[in-house]
Computed example of a mutant assay.
Amino acid sequence: MELQSVWFFLWGLLWAVFFMTDGFDLGIGSLYPFLGRSERDKNMMIHAMGPLWDGNEVWLITAGGVTFAAFPLFYAVMFSSLYSALMLILFALILRGVSFEFRNKVNRPAWKRVWDVCIFVGSFVPALLFGVAFGNIFKGIPIDQDGVYLGNLFTLLNPYGLLAGVLFVCLFLMHGALWLTIRTDGDLAGRAERLAGLLWPVLTGVAVVFLVATYIFTALYDNYLARPVLFLVPAISVAAIVGIKYFLMQKAFFRAWFASAATIVSCTFFGVIGLFPNLFPSSVKAEYSLTAFNASSSPLTLKIMLIVVLLFVPAVLAYQVWAYRLFSVKVTDEDLAHEEMY
Protein backbone atom coordinates (compact mmCIF):
# COMPACT_ATOMS: atom_id res chain seq x y z
CA MET A 1 0.00 0.00 0.00
CA GLU A 2 2.77 2.45 0.95
CA LEU A 3 4.88 1.51 -2.09
CA GLN A 4 1.97 2.17 -4.44
CA SER A 5 1.42 5.56 -2.82
CA VAL A 6 5.11 6.45 -3.14
CA TRP A 7 5.12 5.48 -6.80
CA PHE A 8 1.94 7.45 -7.44
CA PHE A 9 3.77 10.52 -6.08
CA LEU A 10 6.87 9.75 -8.18
CA TRP A 11 4.71 9.28 -11.26
CA GLY A 12 3.23 12.74 -10.75
CA LEU A 13 6.65 14.22 -9.98
CA LEU A 14 8.20 12.96 -13.22
CA TRP A 15 5.34 14.39 -15.29
CA ALA A 16 5.66 17.69 -13.41
CA VAL A 17 9.41 17.83 -14.12
CA PHE A 18 8.78 17.09 -17.80
CA PHE A 19 6.21 19.87 -18.10
CA MET A 20 8.50 22.26 -16.22
CA THR A 21 11.54 21.57 -18.40
CA ASP A 22 10.09 20.87 -21.83
CA GLY A 23 7.37 23.47 -21.32
CA PHE A 24 9.62 26.42 -22.12
CA ASP A 25 10.85 25.03 -25.45
CA LEU A 26 7.32 23.99 -26.45
CA GLY A 27 6.35 27.56 -25.59
CA ILE A 28 9.18 29.06 -27.65
CA GLY A 29 8.26 26.87 -30.61
CA SER A 30 4.62 27.99 -30.31
CA LEU A 31 5.77 31.64 -30.25
CA TYR A 32 8.21 31.09 -33.11
CA PRO A 33 6.13 32.52 -36.00
CA PHE A 34 4.98 35.49 -33.91
CA LEU A 35 8.24 36.65 -32.30
CA GLY A 36 10.60 35.46 -35.05
CA ARG A 37 10.34 38.49 -37.32
CA SER A 38 13.78 38.19 -38.89
CA GLU A 39 16.17 35.40 -39.74
CA ARG A 40 18.36 36.46 -36.80
CA ASP A 41 15.38 36.34 -34.43
CA LYS A 42 14.46 32.84 -35.57
CA ASN A 43 17.98 31.51 -35.24
CA MET A 44 18.29 33.14 -31.83
CA MET A 45 15.05 31.50 -30.65
CA ILE A 46 16.27 28.09 -31.82
CA HIS A 47 19.64 28.62 -30.14
CA ALA A 48 17.88 29.71 -26.94
CA MET A 49 16.36 26.25 -26.52
CA GLY A 50 18.81 24.30 -28.68
CA PRO A 51 21.23 22.94 -26.03
CA LEU A 52 18.40 21.83 -23.73
CA TRP A 53 15.28 20.72 -25.59
CA ASP A 54 16.34 17.14 -26.34
CA GLY A 55 17.55 16.64 -22.77
CA ASN A 56 14.20 17.92 -21.52
CA GLU A 57 12.36 15.24 -23.45
CA VAL A 58 14.29 12.54 -21.59
CA TRP A 59 11.83 13.23 -18.77
CA LEU A 60 8.98 12.25 -21.10
CA ILE A 61 10.66 8.90 -21.72
CA THR A 62 11.27 8.54 -17.98
CA ALA A 63 7.65 9.34 -17.12
CA GLY A 64 6.42 6.89 -19.75
CA GLY A 65 8.87 4.23 -18.55
CA VAL A 66 7.78 4.62 -14.95
CA THR A 67 4.15 4.38 -16.01
CA PHE A 68 4.91 1.10 -17.80
CA ALA A 69 7.03 -0.41 -15.04
CA ALA A 70 5.12 0.72 -11.96
CA PHE A 71 1.56 0.65 -13.30
CA PRO A 72 1.52 -1.70 -16.34
CA LEU A 73 -2.26 -2.12 -16.44
CA PHE A 74 -2.73 1.65 -16.39
CA TYR A 75 -0.11 2.00 -19.14
CA ALA A 76 -1.91 -0.52 -21.35
CA VAL A 77 -5.35 1.02 -20.90
CA MET A 78 -4.10 4.60 -21.21
CA PHE A 79 -2.24 3.99 -24.47
CA SER A 80 -5.16 2.12 -25.99
CA SER A 81 -7.70 4.74 -24.85
CA LEU A 82 -5.66 7.83 -25.71
CA TYR A 83 -3.90 6.21 -28.68
CA SER A 84 -4.86 8.82 -31.30
CA ALA A 85 -3.92 11.79 -29.13
CA LEU A 86 -0.64 10.23 -27.98
CA MET A 87 0.36 9.29 -31.53
CA LEU A 88 -0.32 12.86 -32.68
CA ILE A 89 1.91 14.09 -29.86
CA LEU A 90 4.64 11.62 -30.85
CA PHE A 91 4.52 12.55 -34.55
CA ALA A 92 4.57 16.26 -33.66
CA LEU A 93 7.62 15.84 -31.41
CA ILE A 94 9.43 13.89 -34.13
CA LEU A 95 8.56 16.60 -36.67
CA ARG A 96 9.92 19.30 -34.36
CA GLY A 97 13.22 17.50 -33.82
CA VAL A 98 13.68 16.98 -37.55
CA SER A 99 12.86 20.64 -38.18
CA PHE A 100 15.66 21.88 -35.92
CA GLU A 101 18.13 19.71 -37.81
CA PHE A 102 16.95 20.37 -41.37
CA ARG A 103 15.96 24.05 -41.31
CA ASN A 104 19.40 25.51 -42.05
CA LYS A 105 20.62 22.72 -44.32
CA VAL A 106 19.40 24.58 -47.42
CA ASN A 107 19.61 28.37 -47.63
CA ARG A 108 16.35 28.95 -49.51
CA PRO A 109 13.39 30.96 -48.14
CA ALA A 110 10.79 28.39 -49.25
CA TRP A 111 12.72 25.53 -47.62
CA LYS A 112 13.03 27.44 -44.35
CA ARG A 113 9.36 28.45 -44.36
CA VAL A 114 8.32 24.79 -44.51
CA TRP A 115 10.44 23.88 -41.49
CA ASP A 116 9.36 27.04 -39.65
CA VAL A 117 5.77 25.84 -39.91
CA CYS A 118 6.87 22.40 -38.71
CA ILE A 119 8.59 23.92 -35.66
CA PHE A 120 5.35 25.70 -34.74
CA VAL A 121 3.10 22.68 -35.34
CA GLY A 122 5.54 20.35 -33.59
CA SER A 123 5.47 22.57 -30.52
CA PHE A 124 1.87 23.77 -30.33
CA VAL A 125 0.19 20.40 -30.92
CA PRO A 126 1.95 18.60 -28.00
CA ALA A 127 1.35 21.59 -25.69
CA LEU A 128 -2.38 21.50 -26.46
CA LEU A 129 -2.84 17.72 -26.51
CA PHE A 130 -0.93 17.06 -23.28
CA GLY A 131 -3.41 19.39 -21.61
CA VAL A 132 -6.36 17.72 -23.33
CA ALA A 133 -5.14 14.27 -22.25
CA PHE A 134 -4.62 15.21 -18.60
CA GLY A 135 -7.85 17.20 -18.53
CA ASN A 136 -9.74 14.11 -19.62
CA ILE A 137 -7.96 12.00 -17.01
CA PHE A 138 -9.02 14.51 -14.36
CA LYS A 139 -12.58 14.43 -15.67
CA GLY A 140 -12.78 10.67 -16.15
CA ILE A 141 -12.40 8.44 -19.20
CA PRO A 142 -15.28 6.30 -20.53
CA ILE A 143 -13.82 2.82 -19.94
CA ASP A 144 -15.74 -0.33 -19.03
CA GLN A 145 -14.90 -3.10 -16.57
CA ASP A 146 -12.43 -4.62 -19.05
CA GLY A 147 -10.59 -1.33 -19.58
CA VAL A 148 -12.06 -0.92 -23.08
CA TYR A 149 -12.38 2.69 -24.20
CA LEU A 150 -15.94 3.57 -25.19
CA GLY A 151 -15.18 6.67 -27.23
CA ASN A 152 -12.94 8.14 -29.94
CA LEU A 153 -10.60 11.08 -30.45
CA PHE A 154 -13.48 13.56 -30.57
CA THR A 155 -14.75 12.28 -27.21
CA LEU A 156 -11.58 13.77 -25.73
CA LEU A 157 -12.28 17.16 -27.33
CA ASN A 158 -14.92 18.07 -24.77
CA PRO A 159 -15.12 21.56 -23.23
CA TYR A 160 -13.22 20.66 -20.05
CA GLY A 161 -10.50 18.78 -21.94
CA LEU A 162 -10.04 21.69 -24.34
CA LEU A 163 -9.96 24.14 -21.42
CA ALA A 164 -7.14 22.11 -19.86
CA GLY A 165 -5.37 22.19 -23.23
CA VAL A 166 -5.68 25.98 -23.37
CA LEU A 167 -4.31 26.22 -19.82
CA PHE A 168 -1.27 24.12 -20.75
CA VAL A 169 -0.66 26.26 -23.84
CA CYS A 170 -0.84 29.46 -21.76
CA LEU A 171 1.53 28.03 -19.13
CA PHE A 172 4.04 26.99 -21.79
CA LEU A 173 3.78 30.27 -23.73
CA MET A 174 4.56 32.19 -20.55
CA HIS A 175 7.40 29.81 -19.70
CA GLY A 176 8.88 30.17 -23.18
CA ALA A 177 8.55 33.97 -23.31
CA LEU A 178 10.35 34.28 -19.97
CA TRP A 179 13.16 32.00 -21.15
CA LEU A 180 13.62 34.24 -24.18
CA THR A 181 14.02 37.27 -21.90
CA ILE A 182 16.86 35.39 -20.22
CA ARG A 183 18.63 33.99 -23.28
CA THR A 184 18.15 36.70 -25.93
CA ASP A 185 18.87 40.40 -26.19
CA GLY A 186 17.85 43.51 -28.11
CA ASP A 187 14.44 43.89 -29.72
CA LEU A 188 13.60 40.18 -29.46
CA ALA A 189 14.11 40.16 -25.70
CA GLY A 190 12.05 43.34 -25.39
CA ARG A 191 9.16 41.86 -27.37
CA ALA A 192 9.33 38.66 -25.32
CA GLU A 193 9.15 40.71 -22.13
CA ARG A 194 6.14 42.68 -23.37
CA LEU A 195 4.43 39.50 -24.52
CA ALA A 196 4.97 37.90 -21.11
CA GLY A 197 3.29 40.93 -19.56
CA LEU A 198 0.32 40.55 -21.94
CA LEU A 199 0.11 36.80 -21.34
CA TRP A 200 -0.04 37.14 -17.56
CA PRO A 201 -3.69 38.30 -17.27
CA VAL A 202 -4.71 35.74 -19.90
CA LEU A 203 -2.98 32.93 -17.98
CA THR A 204 -4.49 34.13 -14.70
CA GLY A 205 -7.99 34.29 -16.19
CA VAL A 206 -7.75 30.85 -17.78
CA ALA A 207 -6.42 29.39 -14.51
CA VAL A 208 -9.36 30.83 -12.55
CA VAL A 209 -11.88 29.47 -15.08
CA PHE A 210 -10.12 26.09 -14.97
CA LEU A 211 -10.35 25.93 -11.17
CA VAL A 212 -14.07 26.69 -11.28
CA ALA A 213 -14.66 24.20 -14.11
CA THR A 214 -12.68 21.57 -12.19
CA TYR A 215 -15.10 21.93 -9.27
CA ILE A 216 -18.07 21.50 -11.65
CA PHE A 217 -16.84 18.70 -13.93
CA THR A 218 -14.49 16.62 -11.78
CA ALA A 219 -14.13 15.11 -8.31
CA LEU A 220 -10.61 16.50 -7.79
CA TYR A 221 -11.71 18.71 -4.90
CA ASP A 222 -12.90 15.73 -2.82
CA ASN A 223 -9.40 15.02 -1.49
CA TYR A 224 -8.88 18.70 -0.71
CA LEU A 225 -12.17 19.05 1.14
CA ALA A 226 -11.38 15.89 3.13
CA ARG A 227 -7.92 17.25 4.04
CA PRO A 228 -7.99 21.07 3.92
CA VAL A 229 -4.22 21.27 4.49
CA LEU A 230 -3.84 20.16 0.87
CA PHE A 231 -5.17 23.54 -0.26
CA LEU A 232 -1.58 24.68 0.28
CA VAL A 233 -0.84 23.28 -3.20
CA PRO A 234 -3.26 25.54 -5.14
CA ALA A 235 -2.20 28.36 -2.79
CA ILE A 236 1.38 27.85 -3.98
CA SER A 237 0.11 28.05 -7.57
CA VAL A 238 -1.57 31.38 -6.84
CA ALA A 239 1.56 32.72 -5.13
CA ALA A 240 3.73 31.56 -8.03
CA ILE A 241 1.49 33.25 -10.63
CA VAL A 242 1.60 36.47 -8.60
CA GLY A 243 5.37 36.03 -8.36
CA ILE A 244 5.65 35.94 -12.16
CA LYS A 245 4.05 39.38 -12.40
CA TYR A 246 6.08 40.78 -9.50
CA PHE A 247 9.43 39.63 -10.86
CA LEU A 248 8.51 40.79 -14.36
CA MET A 249 7.88 44.27 -12.99
CA GLN A 250 11.25 44.09 -11.23
CA LYS A 251 12.87 42.86 -14.47
CA ALA A 252 14.20 39.88 -12.50
CA PHE A 253 13.62 37.54 -15.42
CA PHE A 254 15.37 34.45 -14.07
CA ARG A 255 13.28 34.66 -10.89
CA ALA A 256 10.16 35.15 -13.00
CA TRP A 257 11.06 32.01 -14.93
CA PHE A 258 11.47 30.07 -11.68
CA ALA A 259 8.08 31.37 -10.56
CA SER A 260 6.66 30.10 -13.85
CA ALA A 261 8.32 26.72 -13.25
CA ALA A 262 6.77 26.61 -9.76
CA THR A 263 3.38 27.40 -11.30
CA ILE A 264 3.64 24.48 -13.71
CA VAL A 265 4.79 22.02 -11.02
CA SER A 266 2.13 23.10 -8.50
CA CYS A 267 -0.62 23.02 -11.14
CA THR A 268 0.41 19.47 -12.09
CA PHE A 269 0.38 18.39 -8.46
CA PHE A 270 -3.00 20.04 -7.95
CA GLY A 271 -4.39 17.51 -10.40
CA VAL A 272 -2.30 14.56 -9.19
CA ILE A 273 -3.27 15.06 -5.54
CA GLY A 274 -6.92 15.44 -6.49
CA LEU A 275 -6.76 12.20 -8.48
CA PHE A 276 -5.23 10.02 -5.75
CA PRO A 277 -5.58 7.06 -5.60
CA ASN A 278 -7.09 7.06 -9.10
CA LEU A 279 -4.78 6.89 -12.07
CA PHE A 280 -7.44 6.49 -14.73
CA PRO A 281 -10.89 7.21 -13.33
CA SER A 282 -13.80 5.75 -15.26
CA SER A 283 -16.65 8.09 -16.12
CA VAL A 284 -18.88 5.05 -16.72
CA LYS A 285 -18.71 3.60 -13.21
CA ALA A 286 -16.34 4.36 -10.34
CA GLU A 287 -15.67 0.66 -9.78
CA TYR A 288 -14.09 0.42 -13.24
CA SER A 289 -11.42 3.01 -12.40
CA LEU A 290 -7.75 2.07 -12.40
CA THR A 291 -6.01 3.08 -9.19
CA ALA A 292 -2.50 3.01 -7.77
CA PHE A 293 -3.51 -0.14 -5.91
CA ASN A 294 -5.27 -2.26 -8.55
CA ALA A 295 -3.01 -1.36 -11.50
CA SER A 296 0.46 -1.57 -9.94
CA SER A 297 3.33 -4.00 -10.41
CA SER A 298 4.39 -6.48 -7.74
CA PRO A 299 5.87 -5.15 -4.46
CA LEU A 300 9.28 -6.60 -5.38
CA THR A 301 9.29 -4.74 -8.70
CA LEU A 302 8.33 -1.49 -6.99
CA LYS A 303 11.08 -1.95 -4.37
CA ILE A 304 13.81 -2.58 -6.93
CA MET A 305 12.67 0.35 -9.05
CA LEU A 306 12.57 2.63 -6.02
CA ILE A 307 16.23 1.88 -5.26
CA VAL A 308 17.19 2.64 -8.86
CA VAL A 309 15.22 5.90 -8.86
CA LEU A 310 16.70 7.07 -5.56
CA LEU A 311 20.19 6.46 -6.93
CA PHE A 312 19.93 7.92 -10.43
CA VAL A 313 17.21 10.60 -10.49
CA PRO A 314 19.11 12.95 -8.12
CA ALA A 315 22.17 12.60 -10.37
CA VAL A 316 20.12 13.46 -13.46
CA LEU A 317 18.54 16.43 -11.69
CA ALA A 318 21.98 17.69 -10.62
CA TYR A 319 23.20 17.39 -14.21
CA GLN A 320 20.23 19.35 -15.52
CA VAL A 321 20.70 22.10 -12.93
CA TRP A 322 24.32 22.39 -14.10
CA ALA A 323 23.23 22.46 -17.76
CA TYR A 324 20.65 25.16 -17.13
CA ARG A 325 23.19 27.29 -15.29
CA LEU A 326 25.69 26.79 -18.12
CA PHE A 327 23.20 27.81 -20.83
CA SER A 328 21.50 30.64 -18.95
CA VAL A 329 23.72 33.27 -20.60
CA LYS A 330 22.67 35.39 -23.57
CA VAL A 331 22.92 33.97 -27.08
CA THR A 332 25.53 35.95 -29.02
CA ASP A 333 26.15 36.56 -32.71
CA GLU A 334 29.17 34.28 -32.37
CA ASP A 335 26.81 31.48 -31.30
CA LEU A 336 24.62 32.17 -34.32
CA ALA A 337 27.60 31.73 -36.63
CA HIS A 338 27.72 28.03 -35.75
CA GLU A 339 25.43 25.73 -37.69
CA GLU A 340 25.10 23.35 -34.75
CA MET A 341 22.42 24.60 -32.40
CA TYR A 342 22.53 21.80 -29.83
Rank of each mutant, 00 (worst) to 15 (best):
residue 234 P to L: 04
residue 242 V to H: 08
residue 24 F to C: 03
residue 306 L to A: 14
residue 24 F to P: 00
residue 8 F to H: 09
residue 251 K to S: 13
residue 58 V to S: 15
residue 268 T to N: 09
residue 259 A to P: 03
residue 132 V to P: 02
residue 21 T to R: 05
residue 100 F to N: 03
residue 236 I to C: 07
residue 31 L to R: 00
residue 242 V to I: 12
residue 290 L to D: 01
residue 10 L to I: 15
residue 35 L to Q: 00
residue 138 F to M: 12
residue 251 K to A: 12
residue 16 A to M: 03
residue 55 G to I: 06
residue 130 F to N: 03
residue 115 W to V: 03
residue 104 N to W: 12
residue 304 I to E: 11
residue 221 Y to D: 12
residue 154 F to T: 14
residue 31 L to I: 01
residue 64 G to V: 08
residue 200 W to I: 09
residue 257 W to S: 13
residue 289 S to Y: 02
residue 70 A to M: 11
residue 216 I to L: 11
residue 121 V to G: 05
residue 136 N to M: 06
residue 7 W to T: 00
residue 236 I to M: 11
residue 337 A to F: 08
residue 172 F to V: 04
residue 163 L to V: 02
residue 210 F to M: 15
residue 107 N to G: 03
residue 79 F to P: 02
residue 126 P to R: 05
residue 83 Y to S: 02
residue 248 L to C: 09
residue 191 R to V: 10
residue 323 A to Y: 10
residue 291 T to E: 01
residue 151 G to M: 04
residue 193 E to P: 04
residue 259 A to E: 06
residue 270 F to N: 05
residue 77 V to I: 09
residue 73 L to K: 14
residue 278 N to G: 00
residue 58 V to F: 12
residue 109 P to I: 10
residue 307 I to S: 10
residue 50 G to Y: 05
residue 328 S to L: 10
residue 114 V to L: 14
residue 232 L to E: 05
residue 10 L to E: 04
residue 146 D to H: 14
residue 326 L to D: 09
residue 129 L to F: 14
residue 135 G to K: 04
residue 211 L to A: 14
residue 187 D to P: 09
residue 333 D to V: 10
residue 170 C to G: 09
residue 230 L to V: 07
residue 284 V to S: 01
residue 152 N to S: 12
residue 46 I to T: 14
residue 6 V to C: 02
residue 205 G to Y: 12
residue 114 V to M: 13
residue 256 A to D: 07
residue 242 V to W: 11
residue 123 S to H: 06
residue 206 V to M: 11
residue 305 M to K: 06
residue 10 L to T: 04
residue 70 A to V: 10
residue 258 F to E: 11
residue 127 A to F: 06
residue 64 G to I: 08
residue 248 L to P: 02
residue 293 F to P: 00
residue 326 L to T: 13
residue 38 S to I: 01
residue 153 L to R: 01
residue 260 S to G: 11
residue 84 S to P: 01
residue 16 A to T: 00
residue 272 V to E: 02
residue 210 F to Y: 15
residue 97 G to R: 02
residue 69 A to R: 07
residue 70 A to T: 09
residue 203 L to C: 09
residue 115 W to P: 02
residue 285 K to D: 15
residue 304 I to W: 11
residue 98 V to A: 15
residue 67 T to M: 15
residue 162 L to V: 15
residue 236 I to Y: 06
residue 100 F to A: 05
residue 143 I to Y: 04
residue 342 Y to Q: 10
residue 211 L to F: 13
residue 99 S to N: 06
residue 295 A to K: 04
residue 270 F to E: 04
residue 3 L to V: 07
residue 113 R to L: 15
residue 330 K to H: 13
residue 207 A to R: 06
residue 123 S to M: 06
residue 255 R to C: 06
residue 82 L to M: 14
residue 226 A to W: 07
residue 286 A to Q: 11
residue 329 V to S: 14
residue 120 F to R: 07
residue 42 K to G: 03
residue 264 I to A: 01
